[in-house]
Design a binder for these strands. Structure first.
Length: 557
RNA sequence: GGGGACGUAUUUCAGCUGGUUAGAACGCUGCCCUGUCACGGCAGAGGUCGCGAGUUCGAGUCUCGUCGUCCCCGCCA
C-alpha cells in the first residue's frame, strides 16, 4: 500500500480520484475530512468506531465534493469517502491536544516534545529556519565564500577563543573568504534568546574594509528576510556605542520607537541630591500618554528601577494644567520645568528620571536602568510598531572594560579585536580610551551578531596580550602556535558571526529561541524529554579515569 | 549568585479575609443521537492541592525551607 496524496493537499480538482492517505487522527485540526458510511462501507465504518485521537491510520477511498463546503479547512471543498481503513498504529491519549494553539505549559510541551512538534506551527517555524539557512548558504556561495569546518575538539583555550584561532588561521592560509554555519556551545545562564547550544553563521575575510563585511551581512539579512516575506532596505544605519548607550540605555537598542533618554543631572541641585541620597548620574525619558499613571503604577516603576540597582526613580506628570512632581519640594518648580523640557515632554506625558551610583561595564548604570524602563514602558504603552524591522550597526566600542571581579582591564569583546590606529599609542598609557575595530549588528532590540577587524600584526597582538596582564610565559603557553602563525605573513582580516537561532526566532515572529529549536532545553539547561543531563555509568567513568566529586554545599553560618 | 511570576484532576484554570464531602471547562470511559466539521444529550471515572517542616482546634489558603517551569539582572571571554 502506497500513500498517493498528502491529506492537506487534496483540493476540489482531485474530485473523483481514488486516494490513499496516511496520517494521524487529529480530532480538531484534521486536514482532510474522511467519511464512513454505515450502510455502504459497513466494515470500514465499524473499524472507524475503534479509532481514537492520534491513532496512525491509512484510508483508501474516493475524493468527492462535499454537500456543504467548510471554508475553515484548506481541503474544505472535498472529502474522502473511505472504502477501507487500516490502523497502522494506535496511540495513548496525549497529555494535551495536538492543535494549532498551544494549550499546555511549556514544561509539558518540552517533556512531550514529539507531540508538541506534531503541531503545525513548529513545522512552519523549522521549515522557515531551514529556508533561512539554505538562503544564507546560497548568498555566501554567490559572494565567493567557501564553507570550511573547524575542530570542536582541540586544546584548552580561553572559552570561545577556539572559534577565532581557527578562522584567523584560515586567513593566514590564504582562504580569503571563509564561512561556516555551525553549532556553538557556551556556558552561560539561559534566557529566552539564549540556549547552551546554538547556531552561528560565522565568516571571516581577508583584506576587508569594515564596509565590505557590512555589505556581506546586509546582503545575507536582506535575502534571509526575503525568505520570510519581509522587505528590508540596505545599507543599515550606524551608531556609535557611546551614543546608543546615552540615547537608549542599551547596547542593543530597539529603534522601533523613540522615547530617547536625556542626561538630567543638572536639574537636581546639590542639596536635593543629598536629601534624596542620590549618587551618580541621572537619566530621564518622557513616556507619552503616561501622565495618568496611578500611584501604584509609579510605585511599580520605582520598584523595578530599584531591583535594577537604581538609587531612586523620580516622576513628573505633565498635564494641560501644569506640572506635578514627586520631587517638586526637593528640587523646586523651576527644576521640575527644566527636567520636563530636557526630555521634550508634552502634555499627557510622564517624565521618568532614574539615578544610580554604579557603573556597569564602564557605562553609567542610570542610563542602563532608564533603558530598561524605556523598554518596559514602550511595551506597556504600545509604542512598538511590530511591523518594523530596524537594523542597526554599532561601532566605536571601547577595547577594554573594567572587570570589577578581577580588578583589571579585560577585553570588551575578545583579545584579537583590532585597535583603532590613532589609539594605538594609548594602549599602555590610557587603555580605557582605546577604541576597538569591533561592531555589532542589532535588530529590533536583539543583538544578532558581533565581529571585528582583527589584529593581524604579531607585535601588536603581543602588546595587547601584555596590556591584558598576560606574562610572556602564559602567552607562549596559551597562544604560542597562534602568535607564531601571525609571523608568517598574515593578511589584514576581519569577520563576524550571526546568531542563526535569533534570526529564525525574529523572522518567525516568536518571542523565544526555543520555538525555532527542535529539541530545546529549559532555563536550567535540562532536556526534559531525554532527561539530560543524567548520571554516568561508573564503568564509563573508570574507562576514562574520571571520578565525580559530590557537590560541596556551602557550610551554614 | 540576586529579583519577580507560577506550581490544585490528563490538560488549562477557579478556589475571597484559614472552616465541614476541593470546583469548572477540555480531554477520557460507557450509552444514546447524528452529514458532522468547537456536534449534541445522558451517565461515569479521575485529585498525595509539587515536596517537607512549622503556626493553628483546623492549612489548597498563613510562615519557613526545598524542588521544578518561565521572565529579568548579574554572567554572555
Amino acid at each position: 500500500m502506497k500513500r498517493t496524496h498528502y491529506c492537506g493537499e487534496l483540493r476540489a480538482k482531485d474530485e473523483g480520484r481514488d486516494a490513499i492517505v496516511m496520517g494521524w487522527v487529529h480530532r480538531r485540526t484534521g486536514l482532510v475530512q474522511v467519511v464512513f458510511n454505515k450502510e455502504r462501507q459497513a466494515a470500514a465504518h465499524a473499524k472507524a468506531e475503534q479509532v481514537r485521537s492520534e491513532f496512525v491510520v491509512a484510508v483508501e477511498g474516493k475524493i468527492v465534493k462535499r454537500q456543504k463546503a467548510n471554508p475553515e479547512l484548506a481541503s474544505g471543498e472535498i472529502e474522502l469517502v473511505a472504502m477501507k481503513l487500516h490502523t497502522l498504529n494506535n496511540a495513548k491519549t496525549p497529555p494535551f491536544a495536538i492543535e494549532e494553539e498551544i494549550n499546555a505549559a511549556e514544561e509539558t510541551r518540552l517533556r512531550f516534545r514529539y507531540l508538541d512538534l506534531r503541531r503545525p506551527k513548529p513545522h512552519r517555524n523549522l521549515a522557515l529556519r531551514h529556508k533561512i539557512i539554505l538562503e544564507m548558504r546560497k548568498v555566501m556561495d554567490e559572494l565567493g565564500f567557501i564553507e570550511v569546518e573547524t575542530p570542536m575538539l582541540t586544546r584548552s583555550t580561553p572559552e570561545g577563543a577556539r572559534d577565532y584561532l581557527f578562522k584567523q588561521i584560515l586567513m593566514i592560509s590564504g582562504f580569503d573568504k571563509y564561512f561556516q554555519i555551525v553549532r556553538c556551545f557556551r556556558d552561560e545562564d539561559l534566557r529566552a534568546d539564549r540556549q547552551p547550544e546554538f547556531t552561528q553563521l560565522d565568516l571571516e575575510m581577508s583584506f576587508p574594509r569594515q564596509e565590505d563585511i557590512f555589505h556581506v551581512i546586509e546582503t545575507v539579512m536582506v535575502r534571509a528576510c526575503g525568505v520570510a516575506g519581509i522587505k528590508v532596505a540596505a545599507p543599515f544605519p550606524h551608531m556609535l556605542y557611546m551614543d546608543v548607550i546615552r540615547k537608549y540605555g542599551s547596547d542593543k537598542p530597539d529603534l522601533r520607537f523613540g522615547m530617547e533618554l536625556h542626561e538630567v543631572r543638572s536639574c537636581f541641585p546639590e542639596e536635593a541630591k543629598q536629601k534624596l541620597q542620590m549618587e551618580g548620574n541621572v537619566f530621564a525619558l518622557a513616556a507619552p500618554g503616561a501622565a495618568g499613571y496611578s500611584r501604584k503604577q509609579l510605585d511599580d516603576l520605582t520598584e523595578k528601577a530599584k531591583a535594577l540597582k537604581a538609587r531612586g526613580a523620580y516622576f513628573v506628570k505633565v498635564t494641560p494644567e501644569g506640572l506635578t512632581s514627586t520631587v517638586e519640594k526637593m528640587i523646586g518648580a523651576e527644576n521640575v520645568k527644566k527636567l520636563a523640557e530636557a526630555c521634550g515632554a508634552k502634555p499627557g506625558d510622564l517624565v521618568v528620571a532614574v539615578s544610580a551610583k554604579e557603573q556597569i561595564k564602564g557605562t553609567e548604570a542610570a542610563a542602563l536602568i532608564a533603558g530598561q524602563l524605556r523598554l518596559q514602558l514602550g511595551e506597556a504603552l504600545n509604542l512598538i510598531d511590530k511591523s518594523q524591522w530596524k537594523f542597526l550597526w554599532i561601532t566605536g566600542f571601547p577595547l577594554f572594560e573594567w572587570s570589577e571581579t578581577d580588578k583589571t582591564w579585560v577585553s570588551a569583546q575578545h583579545p584579537f579585536t583590532g585597535i583603532v590606529d590613532e589609539d594605538l599609542e594609548k594602549l599602555e598609557s590610557a587603555p580605557w580610551e582605546v577604541r576597538s575595530k569591533g561592531y555589532d549588528l542589532v535588530l529590533n532590540g536583539y543583538e544578532l551578531g558581533s565581529g571585528s577587524i582583527r589584529i593581524h600584526r604579531q607585535d601588536i597582538q603581543e602588546r595587547l596580550f601584555k596590556a591584558l596582564g598576560l606574562s610572556e610565559e602564559q602567552l607562549r603557553r596559551r597562544f604560542g602556535f597562534f602568535l607564531e602563525a601571525l609571523t608568517y605573513g598574515t593578511p589584514p582580516h576581519g569577520g563576524i558571526a550571526l546568531g542563526v537561532d535569533r534570526i529564525a526566532m525574529l523572522l518567525s515572529g516568536e518571542k523565544s529561541i526555543r520555538e525555532v529549536i527542535a529539541f530545546a532545553k529549559t532555563t536550567a539547561a535540562q532536556d526534559l524529554m531525554a532527561d539530560s543531563p543524567s548520571e554516568v555509568d561508573p564503568g564509563q567513568l573508570d574507562e576514562l579515569g574520571l571520578a565525580v566529586k559530590p557537590e560541596v554545599k556551602k557550610a551554614a553560618e
